[in-house]
Design a protein around this nucleic acid. Structure first.
Length: 369
RNA sequence: UGGGGUGUAGCCAAGUGGUAAGGCACGGGACUUUGACUCCCGCACUCGUAGGUUCAAAUCCUGCCACCCCAG
C-alpha cells in the first residue's frame, strides 16, 4: 500500500491546548511543547463542585482544586494563556454517578478510565477543537504513532518506562488520536522532574497523584454513603461452600483480591473472592482461590478502525499495575469478548478494565463482567 | 464443689528452669493517577491470680479464680 492511499493527512497547524492538572507531568508537557515552538495554551478542568476552604487541598490528587492554583502558576511561569474549564456537571453525570452505581452493584469501577474516556478525550477534546485548537495535549506516559501502512494512528506503550499509562488510555479512537499529543512520552519520570526543575516550574517536587481525585482521604465508601444517603448494610462473609464466617460492613467496602479490612483471624489470610450484591454477601477464600484463567468482558473498544479478526493471540492486562500476560481473545456473543489466559491470573475483578496489547501496540480493551 | 483438663498479646499457638517463636488480625510506612495486591517496620518489660522454692521460673510447689470435660 502506498502513501497515496492514505486518506488522513496529519494536521500541520500548531495551536495546542494542554490539559494541565497542576502536576509535574502535564506542566512539563506544556513546557516541552512551548520549547518546540507550538502555540500553547493551558487549561485545567474544574470537575468537582466547590466546597468551603477544606477543598483547598495541598496534597496530591490529579484534579483537586489546588490543582487550579498550581496549574495557573505554571502557566504564568511559562508565559502561556491559561483557562479553567467548568466540567462539573458532566463529570458528575459521566464519572461520579456511574462510579457510585457500580459500587452499589458490587463491582469495582475505575473512574480514571471513565474520566479519560468521557471527559478528557471526549468532552475536553471537542471543546478544544471548537475553540479553534488543533491539538489537545496531556501528560500521559504513552506514545502515539501514525503508520502509513494502515493509514492509522497507533497507541504504543513505552516498554522501558515503568510509568506507562496506556492502560488508562485504551478507549482512545482514531479521531482522538489524530488530535492528541503526548509530549512526555519519550522521557522517564526523573527526566521530567529535572526538566521542571531546570525550567523553574513551581511544581517540580510535587508528589505524583494517587488517589481517586474526587474522594477525600481515600474513604470512597464514606463518599458513596454520603452521596447516596444509603447506609451500607452489614451482611455475611461466607466461604466457597456457603458457610458463614463472620459479618461484613457492607459490600461497597470490598473488592476482589482484597485482604485488608476483613478482620478475621485464621491460619491463613482471607481474601475477597467475590461480592454478591443479590444476597448482600462477600465470599472469602485464600490466595490460591483467586487465580482464574478466563473472563468475559463487555463494552469492547478497539483503537483501530480496522476490525480485529478473532480469535487472536494477544497480551492482556487486567488492572492498572498488572503485567500484560499472554492470552487468547475470542468472541463471546452479545458483542462481548472471552479472554482466555495462558496461565491463571490473580483477582480478576468485575468493573475493572482488561486491556489488549500486541507487543508495544495497544489494541483496545473492555470492561470485565 | 467427686474426678480429670485448660488458662501465654484481639484470635490461634510455640515454649517443660536461664531470661517470651510463628501465623492471623491490627497500626504505620513504601509502592500505586481506580479499588486492590505486595513489600518493610511495629505490635506481651510479660505468660489467669497470690505467694513459695531457686543465682535464675511462663516453665517446679501451694492457695485462689475462670472456663471445659467426665461422673453422680
Amino acid at each position: 500500500m502506498s502513501e497515496a492511499a492514505c486518506i488522513i493527512e496529519p494536521i500541520q497547524r500548531k495551536r495546542v491546548l494542554v490539559a494541565m492538572s497542576g502536576g509535574v507531568d502535564s506542566s512539563v508537557a506544556a513546557l516541552i511543547l512551548k520549547q518546540q515552538g507550538y502555540d500553547v495554551t493551558g487549561a485545567t478542568l474544574q470537575i468537582w463542585p466547590d466546597e468551603p476552604d477544606e477543598q483547598i487541598r495541598t496534597d496530591t490528587g490529579c484534579c483537586s482544586l489546588s490543582a487550579v492554583d498550581d496549574a495557573r502558576r505554571v502557566a504564568a511561569a511559562l508565559d502561556i494563556p491559561y483557562y479553567v474549564l467548568n466540567f462539573k456537571m458532566l463529570f458528575d453525570n459521566a464519572v461520579i454517578e456511574p462510579f457510585v452505581q457500580e459500587y452499589m452493584r458490587g463491582r469495582t469501577p475505575n473512574p480514571c478510565i471513565t474520566c479519560n474516556w468521557k471527559i478528557k478525550f471526549e468532552a475536553m477534546l471537542e471543546k478544544a477543537l471548537a475553540l479553534g485548537f488543533d491539538y489537545l495535549a496531556t501528560g500521559h506516559y504513552a506514545r502515539i504513532r501514525y503508520t502509513n501502512e494502515k493509514c492509522e494512528y497507533e497507541l504504543l506503550t513505552d516498554a522501558a518506562n515503568p510509568k506507562d499509562q496506556t492502560y488508562a488510555l485504551y478507549r482512545l479512537n482514531q479521531h482522538q488520536l489524530a488530535h492528541l499529543m503526548l509530549p512526555i512520552a519519550d522521557y522517564d519520570k526523573n527526566e521530567i522532574r529535572k526538566m521542571a526543575l531546570d525550567a523553574g516550574l513551581p511544581v517540580a517536587h510535587k508528589p505524583d497523584s494517587q488517589e481517586i481525585c474526587f474522594v477525600k482521604d481515600n474513604s470512597y465508601a464514606d463518599f458513596i454513603e454520603t452521596r447516596t444517603g444509603i447506609h451500607s448494610r452489614e451482611g455475611e462473609f461466607v466461604d466457597l461452600r456457603g458457610n458463614v464466617l463472620g459479618k461484613h460492613r457492607g459490600i461497597i467496602h470490598y473488592t476482589v483480591g482484597q485482604r485488608k479490612g476483613i478482620g478475621l483471624a485464621a491460619d491463613e489470610a482471607f481474601y475477597v473472592l467475590a461480592v454478591d450484591p443479590q444476597n448482600n454477601r462477600v465470599v472469602l477464600g485464600h490466595d490460591s482461590d483467586l487465580y482464574k484463567n478466563e473472563l468475559i468482558a463487555g463494552q469492547v473498544h478497539y483503537i483501530s478502525n480496522l476490525p480485529l479478526a478473532l480469535p487472536v493471540h494477544i497480551e492482556a492486562k487486567i488492572r492498572y499495575s498488572a503485567k500484560a500476560v499472554p492470552a487468547e481473545l475470542l468472541p463471546a456473543g452479545d458483542g462481548k469478548v472471552h479472554v482466555v489466559f495462558e496461565k491463571p491470573v490473580r483477582a480478576i475483578t468485575p468493573g475493572q478494565s482488561v486491556v489488549f496489547y500486541k507487543g508495544d501496540l495497544v489494541l483496545g480493551g473492555a470492561i470485565i463482567d
